[in-house]
């Protein structure tokens, strides 16, 4: 009779396959993602899932910062822009191959973000939120006024499609695979990061920085590291965005996007990878569901009322999750799962 799952050894804490079933689950998810979905989904759903995937990459990145290191960023859209423009310009002007351009773009986004991190992370408190808000506005200004970088008022940078063997990013299937391959790599990286010394150091700094400093874990260093990794992943989501749309322009990476990333991890679940994915899916698809389902149950709203209602619902959802279930959707899922697993002796 199972009454719960208890870790008796430290190795169990950091095991990837916490239970024997976990391995089967992971393989099943991978099989569905990479084989079943591309074969059966309609082009429309591939497009929607691709958008979910791009959002999930950004949200997973942000979750490293917020969930594990306990800092807030309101500038992740700006770092995504830095990534997108770096890779786009490297490919279009310097003829760099994409496998050089993409990692360079991620590093560029990370390094750029450190300017703001260095200014604010030395101080205790949530000053990073304010500094990154500044980053958001500064980047938007640079994109629209320094035309020698962006190459014209529209700041348009065309992303040459990636065509490697059967992977062709001009088709919905190709875009979908590109994004989900990237997402799988990001998830694997973050999962492993959290099992490493660095990941645990971040959590220690978040929970009790004085104790962490006492154990020779430098709070500044690990906060900066988390911020760097998080922004680099945001940069990757910008690159993916560019390949998905085929180009980027100055008006894409707005503050609203940064706030949406935050909403995703809050609704999905702070400090959990499945939470980031669930949140990204929820926030991306909620407008679509509302649009399709409300008329089906006889509620006809004008387009603008629907949008405003959504904006409000985002806020309400975040507040409700903060108050009732701070672990988000993933927390809810776990509660339900545990209830049934331990039934009839649930408590």
């Amino acid at each position: 009779m199972e009454t719960g799952r208890f870790h008796e050894k430290y190795a169990e804490e950091i095991a990837v396959y916490g239970t024997p079933y976990r391995r089967i689950w992971i393989l099943a998810v991978l099989a569905v993602t990479f084989v079943v979905v591309p074969l059966v989904a309609s082009p429309y759903w591939l497009v929607v899932l691709t958008l979910v995937g791009i959002a999930a990459v950004g949200a997973t990145g942000l979750n490293v910062l917020v969930g594990y290191a306990g800092q807030i960023s309101l500038g992740h859209a700006a770092f995504a822009a830095v990534g997108a423009y770096t890779s786009g310009l490297l490919v279009s002007r310097a003829d760099a191959p994409f496998w050089v351009a993409i990692p360079t773009a991620m590093v560029a986004a990370g390094v750029f973000s450190l300017i703001f991190g260095l200014a604010s992370l030395r101080v205790k408190g949530l000053y990073l939120a304010i500094a990154t808000l500044a980053a958001q506005y500064i980047v938007q200004w640079i994109l629209s006024s320094w035309t020698w970088i962006t190459g014209g008022f529209q700041g348009i940078v065309i992303f040459e499609p990636i065509q490697v063997g059967p992977l062709d990013t001009t088709t919905p299937t190709g875009k979908y695979l590109m994004v989900f391959i990237a997402l799988a790599l990001v998830v694997m990286f973050v999962e492993n990061l959290m099992r490493s010394r660095s990941g645990r150091a971040m959590i220690a700094v978040r929970d009790q920085d004085i104790a962490a400093a006492g154990s020779a874990v430098s709070p500044l260093r690990y906060k900066l590291l988390a911020f760097f990794i998080s922004s680099a992943i945001a940069g990757l989501s910008g690159v993916l965005y560019g390949y998905n749309a085929g180009l980027v322009s100055t008006e894409v990476f707005t503050l609203a996007l940064s706030v949406q990333y935050l909403a995703m991890i809050l609704v999905g679940g702070l400090g959990s990878i499945p939470g980031s994915l669930l949140g990204a899916a929820f926030i991306t698809m909620l407008p679509i569901w509302l649009r399709d389902l409300l008329p089906a149950v006889g509620i006809e709203l004008s387009a603008s009322v629907e949008v405003h209602l959504l904006t409000m619902l985002f806020g309400v959802a975040i507040l409700l999750f903060l108050v009732l279930e701070p672990r988000g959707l993933y927390g809810l899922f776990r509660n339900v799962k545990d209830y049934f697993r331990m039934w009839p002796f649930s408590y």
């Binding site: 405003h308 904006t311 409000m312 619902l313 985002f314 806020g315 309400v316 975040i318 507040l319 903060l322």
Partner: peptide
């Protein structure tokens, strides 16, 4: 979140 609610 409050900001979002007011904006809507």
């Amino acid at each position: 979140a409050l900001g979002s609610i007011i904006r809507g």
